[in-house]
Simulated scan of single mutants.
Amino acid sequence: MTNAPQDYPDARGGCQCGAIRFFIAAGPAKAGLCHCRMCQRATGNAFAPLLEVPAARVSWEGVAPSEWASSNISQRGFCPTCGTPLYLRTDDTFEFMAGCLSPDVPFLPQDQGGMEARKSWLDALPSLPAHTTRPELLAVVVSHQSKED
């Protein structure tokens, strides 16, 4: 990502099942979207919203993340219990998936990369009808996800 770092407050996050929790100390961070094919595959989605922070500001609780070398320059971290994709790691940085961050983290993307692989159907999103989850569905769903955030 090429955006300039912005100051972020302390942040927390983790995986779906709660086996992995992380803490990011306050300081400069870079938020952006990556549309590259590697990120599409790693997230199972059209793009990856990523918050890049220095590794020295990250601490972990719970089980250790599993990692897979998705390239010669980076590792992809995920929960070995529930499979949640957590981050892209290089030698000195973590780029956390925005969906793993607590909802109170002010994720503010400043740029987009990997545009050569961007899905063209994303252009239609602003014109699609939007709705909240149906209350009758929410009434019967029992989540097995961590309640921490």
Rank of each mutant, 00 (worst) to 15 (best):
R37D: 12
R37E: 14
C39V: 07
Q40E: 12
R41K: 15
A42Y: 06
T43C: 09
T43Q: 14
T43G: 04
T43P: 04
T43R: 13
N45S: 15
N45Q: 15
A46Q: 08
A46L: 14
A46N: 10
F47R: 03
F47H: 09
P49L: 09
P49W: 07
L50G: 01
L50H: 05
L51M: 13
L51D: 01
E52A: 11
V53G: 03
V53L: 08
P54F: 05
A55G: 04
A56M: 11
A56W: 14
A56R: 14
A56C: 12
R57M: 00
V58A: 02
S59V: 09
S59K: 09
W60K: 03
W60D: 01
W60M: 09
E61I: 00
E61V: 02
E61Y: 06
G62I: 05
G62H: 05
V63G: 05
P65H: 02
E67C: 06
E67F: 15
E67P: 00
E67V: 13
W68S: 07
S70Y: 06
S70W: 07
S70E: 04
S71L: 07
I73F: 13
I73Y: 12
I73A: 10
Q75T: 08
R76P: 06
R76D: 03
R76G: 05
R76Q: 07
R76V: 08
F78T: 04
F78A: 01
C79Y: 01
C79L: 04
P80Y: 09
T81M: 04
T81F: 05
T81W: 04
G83Y: 06
T84D: 03
P85V: 10
Y87D: 01
Y87K: 02
